[in-house]
């Protein structure tokens, strides 16, 4: 077993372990942290596949931004685990069904298109091969329409989310920065000259 293979098995084991802990651990904050570990291990696996752009973007977007917001929300909410566990037996059949369906779908894709378990090894690429450049070349030529449609859909989603949360509440103590900046000294204070008062004995 080569060193690369050793690293692969270490990260693969870590990934499987972390993914299992995400659903079995009791504390929601711990679950999110295990999810972070799972993302990180899969990024390491992608690095082994020489897909460094995807690996780094996975860390940047999911670990660095999405999971931070997740953690932020979960830490803020006071989640009662007992309430969460109430409907467990009721949802088990649905959960098992969805899980099995995903496993079957993944297996079909992997066996059909990647010819597992004995697919061809990926090509060894020269050291100066730029993953990022190739990805950009393909993305902005072959897949430019799907890429831009996806971007437009995301933009619509952003605007929709903002519109949904945007409401005027007259009772908040919200401050308008533009008005704050416009304030001049003479609006607020007045300096009055007056003589010193004599102390009366």
């Amino acid at each position: 077993m080569g060193f690369e293979q050793f690293i692969f098995y270490v990260f693969a084991a870590l990934l499987v372990f972390a993914a299992l802990r995400v659903v079995t651990v009791r504390n929601p904050v711990h679950a999110v942290l295990f999810l972070v570990l799972a993302f990180f291990s899969s990024a390491a696996l992608w690095l082994l596949l020489e897909a460094e752009f995807l690996a780094l973007v996975l860390v940047l977007v999911y670990v660095g931004a999405v999971m931070v917001l997740f953690l932020f929300v979960i830490m803020m909410l006071d989640i009662d685990i007992a309430v969460l566990r109430e409907g467990f037996t009721r949802y088990v059949p649905v959960g098992v069904f969805v899980g099995l369906a995903i496993v079957v779908e993944m297996a079909l894709v992997l066996i059909r298109y990647f010819a597992l378990p004995a697919g061809a090894a990926p090509k060894q690429l020269p050291a100066d091969y730029s993953n990022t450049r190739m990805l950009g070349d393909v993305l902005y030529t072959h897949y430019v329409y799907s890429f831009e449609i996806a971007a437009a859909i995301l933009l619509v989603a952003i605007i929709a989310a903002i519109v949904l949360t945007l409401r005027r509440r007259p009772d908040t103590k919200h401050q308008d920065p533009a008005r704050q900046v416009r304030v001049r000294r003479r609006d607020r204070i007045r300096i009055v000259k007056m003589d010193a008062e004599k102390k009366t004995p």
């Binding site: 973007v57 940047l60 660095g64």
Partner: peptide, 21 residues
């Protein structure tokens, strides 16, 4: 590293976990 700038961005974005945790 070919994607050095991206590596830096990814790593600096992870520093927040120390603070949060």
């Amino acid at each position: 590293v070919d994607a050095g700038l991206l590596f830096l961005l990814a790593l600096t974005s992870m520093g927040i976990y120390g603070v949060l945790i």
